[in-house]
Design a protein around this nucleic acid. Structure first.
Lengths: 266, 266
DNA sequence: TTGCTCCTCACGTCACGTGAGGTGGC
DNA sequence: TTGCTCCTCACGTCACGTGAGGTGGC
């Protein structure tokens, strides 16, 4: 007859695990020898290996106990389930392998690929890294709240930035972000910006795009506050826009007629 | 700013998990709003997704904490480790898939394939299932104690059982196992058995096989006791063998000259 | 006596899950 | 007032790991 350590070694488990299975009622307690030691026969080896094979395949011990007394049909169905789960776990791990590669490469996992492509396009257009970082954080917040709308928003933004006048205005805005709050060039800057906005609005009304790209008011307020907190000229610029008939930033609206427009800030 | 549930939802984790990461020092506690609620910015989203990506890949949280502050080189090395582990886990699960198929088919996982082949050969030779079950249990105990010697032992046993005289004797022994302990046919049976044993010993001495196949004395004693406890004629048969110059069963030895021989029982 | 295997409690681990009891704005 | 989200304890879970303190035969 086998001792507990011989039994455990053959099945590739610890002595503690064998005792655990006794306590859980998975493996029947065998007779003891004159020293009180457990002594195992061949059935225990067979049972222990069944238990381990199931447990190694990730079956909870409570389920293992059920399966040990299950009929052939129920057992076969359970094996089907276990195999399905194992295949799913293999797929999960293959996915995780891909994800950690992206992590190592420094890719922003907090953003969907379209947003990463948009930031890359801004980089190509000569937008400095500081501004890219600001865009990135803003889009991360948008993606966190509206993941489903990201492909649509990014398609729109990518198209918008390709307009030469928009590109130029965007690059100028990046420069202006470094100005002091009372810079004398601001009113002229606001004039140009309003001109561009009103051109865009007219263009969009032709094919009715404006309504689709308005974001939720709470989110717009959040993004506006990020803008106000990180750019010195922001508050003064919004004042100047308001004097010229526009209010807001993320969701620009005409002050008198209530027209919405997906504005220059994200 | 995001609430804890918005943050959690975007990263695909529970609110409890986010609080857990705060408690463990993985994710810095953000500022609270006027109601004492946590409010998160874009950096929290980035950090949380990093944490989850690593944790999902099976990295312990204590290690995740180290990696969050690690340099690029250490991080790349860690990713290598993680990827290696993921590949190993995939291989494990592929192995487990094969094993549970064997379980479902009712294969004896407690025996190596050679032993299963030996039992199948006995079946082909007409050995009844009751006797197969006895052989099986005995070989399971041998395999549990001498896993490395199983291929050798099975090769020997497979060759031995192919000798027509041994096959016939084995089948007769199976019949005799059902006799009462005092069956009058036993002495004649013992004569035949001794004749066969002595023939075999002579044959083996030619190519010096006998010494290689002696099992450990403790194990031999165990297997003998299994034989004695399960077969009524066993004790009387061993007495008769001893009268004819042979002692033991698993390890048969000549009583006067001390020659060993791997006996008829396993 | 030392060394080895066995024994039975019983607390610890890991990554949260799950109430319990309470607050704050609609 | 009801419903929803948030808050902080604090105990529970799962499958054992890990001593703690002791026994039994060489």
């Amino acid at each position: 007859m086998l001792t507990i350590s011989q039994l455990a070694a053959y099945a590739g488990v610890t002595v503690r695990a064998v005792r655990h299975y006794h306590a859980k009622g998975l493996l029947p307690e065998p007779d003891r020898d004159h020293s009180g030691y457990r002594r195992y026969g061949a059935e225990a080896v067979v049972e222990l290996i069944r238990i381990r094979t199931l447990a190694d395949a990730g079956v909870p011990l409570s389920r293992v106990r059920e399966l040990l007394v299950a009929g052939e049909e129920e057992f076969a169905a359970a094996i089907e389930d276990i195999d399905r789960r194992l295949r799913a776990e293999i797929r999960d791990r293959q996915r995780h392998r891909e994800q950690i590669v992206h992590l190592a490469a420094g890719d922003s996992l907090a953003l969907p690929p379209e947003a990463v492509a948009y930031l890359d396009r801004l980089r190509q257009l000569g937008v400095p890294e500081r501004a890219i970082g600001f865009e990135r954080d803003a889009w991360i917040l948008v993606a966190a709240q509206l993941p489903d709308q990201m492909p649509m928003l990014m398609t729109y933004k990518l198209a918008q930035i390709e307009t030469p006048a928009v590109t130029a205005m965007y690059l100028d805005l990046v420069q202006a972000a470094d100005w002091a709050a009372d810079d004398p060039r601001l009113p002229a800057f606001a004039d140009r910006l309003v001109g561009l906005i009103e051109e865009s609005v007219e263009g969009e009304q032709d094919h009715g795009l404006e309504a689709e790209f308005a974001v939720d008011d709470d989110l717009a307020e959040l993004l506006d506050s990020v803008f106000l907190n990180s750019v010195p000229i922001a508050a003064r610029l919004l004042e100047l826009l308001e004097e010229r008939g526009w209010t807001g930033w993320t969701n620009l609206r005409r002050v008198a007629p209530a027209t919405r427009y997906a504005g220059p800030g994200p």
